[in-house]
Amino acid sequence: MTNVTMTVNGKSVSAPAEGRTLLVEYLRTGLGLTGTHVGCDTSQCGACVVHVDGRAVKSCTVFAMDVEGSDVRTIEGMANADGSLGVVQQAFQDHHGLQCGFCTPGMVMTTAALLAENPRPSEAEVRHGLEGNICRCTGYHNIVKAVLAASGQDADAIAAQ
């Protein structure tokens, strides 16, 4: 084990890791940031998505040592400074975009990255943008609405078309 240092949610952190330690293990076990989840072992489900240097990545498919020194953001760092829900988080609550909550952190992180690149996506772009995040509860209806709403569009009107 050696200590690996990076910036997580704006704070410089350090925790022990082996070569094989995945970023998600580093976050969950090393730092106690259990909001990032593991839902599969084939890099498909997206429950573990975090941002590394501003880009969404699957933290179950990245070695912690490979992102040493990077700027990492997790679900725990997505609320506003006053603790209130951020725009994406609030849209998910407003539109009932989550049920069991397990895929939710990954959905929020993917959505935030999607909207940073494409601030006003079409329904098709949202659905395509979420293809790496699996939800078993919602049938995606309200997740897609939440993403559209978070981009400032009239989600109800788009869904009704």
Partner: peptide, 9 residues
Amino acid sequence: IGDPAVRNR
């Protein structure tokens, strides 16, 4: 290829 997160890595 893959999905957005996969394409970033």
